[in-house]
Design a protein around this nucleic acid. Structure first.
Lengths: 189, 189
DNA sequence: TAATAAGTGGAGAATTGCTCCACTTACTAT
DNA sequence: ATAGTAAGTGGAGCAATTCTCCACTTATTA
């Protein structure tokens, strides 16, 4: 719930600080990829050749760092979805979005657990991603493609579960399988 | 996958050791309830008035301690299910079991994340619980109450997500809502 | 009532998170 | 150019935590 303060003003970084910020993000991507989303922040600072204090100054929490890393990708995700949506059934469109988001959320081991927190951080990309998800859900409900009592949180919950399962070593097809089950239900007869 | 070595032989504990084991379990239940499943093990040892070495000797890992705590409850869960199952449709029976398991898994904050690991530990109760779940799923498939391509891991995944969502402060009704969605599917039209 | 196997506790090493502040450096106004 | 200053930096250091190791203690048994 609750996302209506879109653009957060930021005083522009000094040139050296911007450079360091980029270095930290690169190092963080490497280290998180190798060791998972709960890797040591000291490792990241060391690999970026930056003091640990600098890392904390720029990213006060681990979630802030993860959110910054997700930002670009989430932007792309939302953009893809918007173009795709023109030529797709609302249900299928929502389903595709969920698969993509779940795939993203299993990019680092352990990212899924904090996905909710990351999505609520007010970076532009995360904001765009969440907004797009809500838009798709609304449209699907309006056109009677999904049940009315489904909330965005419910979707997020399923996405988290899916990423969690995929992250624990299962094959990639597991993601679509789980999300399909969620769309179609497992009950028969 | 993989559970066919049921009864693990244990050489009986010395009287004082058994007493300490019980003290540790009581303290662990208190501390985990207050501070979540990732609380400090030192705190637990201190509350149990036992050295930290004693705790580690009895429970080599955090998961082992959690598994021991889950043991009794899982036993009860499996027993309840078995008696209930006589008078219930297979689909409804499975659904009820999942709601109960998810409720249990949100008993401590953060327990859900390690539920899979805990269930695979070979304590008698966890073994009984997992076995019962598999039995229910098999029967439901055999009587054509749920789809054939649903695995026990899939159920566990949904249960984990559900507990995760419930544990993060949502109301208890969330559990049944999520599991119902999973049974019925969200697609309409 | 020895003998001994089982059990105990806690010091301490290793790791990590995070803060604080004395120093350094890029920007800008003149 | 350059002086003034706000922004930025790095890493020492404290606190919390996990986990091991082993000299000591105690229940059990023959």
């Amino acid at each position: 719930m609750s996302t209506d303060s879109p653009p957060i003003e930021e005083t522009p970084l000094r040139a050296d600080a911007a450079r360091n910020r980029e270095r930290i993000l690169e190092a963080a991507d490497e280290v998180f990829s190798e060791r998972g989303a709960d890797a040591s922040l000291d490792d990241i600072a060391r690999r970026a050749k930056v003091g640990i204090g600098t890392l904390y100054r720029r990213f006060p929490t681990r979630d802030a760092l993860l959110a910054a890393l997700c930002d670009e990708r989430m932007f792309a995700l939302a953009a893809n979805s918007r173009t795709r949506d023109d030529t797709m059934e609302p249900g299928a469109s929502l389903r595709t979005f969920m698969v993509e988001l779940a795939t993203h959320a299993s990019h680092y081991q352990g990212l899924a657990v904090v996905l909710g927190a990351v999505l609520q951080s007010q970076t532009a990309g995360c904001h765009a991603g969440a907004a797009e998800g809500m838009r798709l859900l609304d449209r699907a409900k309006r056109e009677n493609a999904v049940a009315m009592d489904v909330s965005f949180d419910d979707l997020l919950c399923v996405i988290t579960a899916t990423s969690l399962a995929a992250g624990q070593g299962g094959p990639k097809s597991r993601i679509t399988h789980l999300i399909d089950m969620f769309f179609n239900g497992i009950k028969r007869g």
